[in-house]
Computed example of a mutant assay.
Amino acid sequence: MSGEVVSVGEAWRARAKAANDAADELDGLVEAVASTLRNNQLGLDCIEGEELFKQLSAIAVDWRLGMRTEVDYLKNIARRCIRASEAYGVADGA
Rank of each mutant, 00 (worst) to 15 (best):
A94E: 02
A11Y: 14
A87V: 04
K17I: 07
E31D: 13
A18G: 09
V33S: 15
I82G: 02
A84H: 14
A84Q: 13
R80Y: 09
D45R: 14
M67C: 03
A91Q: 07
V61P: 08
G66L: 03
D24G: 14
W63H: 12
T69L: 04
G49C: 05
V8P: 01
V30H: 05
A94C: 01
K75N: 11
T36Y: 07
T36I: 08
V30C: 12
R13T: 11
L56W: 11
S2C: 01
C46L: 05
S2M: 00
C46V: 11
Y73A: 10
S7D: 01
L65K: 13
A91D: 00
A58V: 12
I59Y: 14
R64S: 13
R80E: 09
T69Y: 03
D72E: 13
R15F: 08
A18W: 03
V6W: 02
I82A: 04
L65G: 06
D27N: 15
L29R: 15
V30E: 07
A78H: 12
L52S: 11
A84M: 14
A23E: 04
L74R: 15
S57H: 07
N76V: 09
S85I: 04
R13S: 08
A19Y: 09
S85C: 13
R38W: 05
E50R: 08
C46K: 14
V90N: 06
D62S: 13
A58S: 15
A19P: 00
A22M: 05
E48S: 14
A32P: 01
V5S: 05
A87W: 09
S35Q: 14
E86L: 11
L37Y: 12
E86R: 14
A87G: 02
Q55L: 10
E50D: 03
V8A: 08
A22P: 00
G3L: 04
V8C: 04
E86G: 02
F53I: 01
S2K: 00
D24F: 08
Q41T: 02
C81A: 15
L29N: 13
L29F: 07
A91N: 04
A19S: 13
L56Y: 10
D45E: 06
C46G: 01
A87F: 11
A58C: 09
D72L: 13
K54G: 03
K54E: 05
L44P: 00
K75V: 06
A18K: 14
C46D: 07
S35G: 10
A19R: 14
K17Q: 12
W12L: 13
Q55F: 02
W63F: 13
K75Q: 15
D24H: 11
R80K: 10
A60E: 15
R38L: 10
M67F: 01
V6E: 02
G3P: 02
D62A: 12
A14H: 13
A84E: 13
R68G: 02
E25M: 12
C46S: 11
A11N: 08
T69P: 00
A32S: 15
L29I: 07
M1D: 09
F53E: 01
A84K: 15
A84S: 14
W12R: 15
V61G: 11
A16I: 08
V71S: 10
A11K: 15
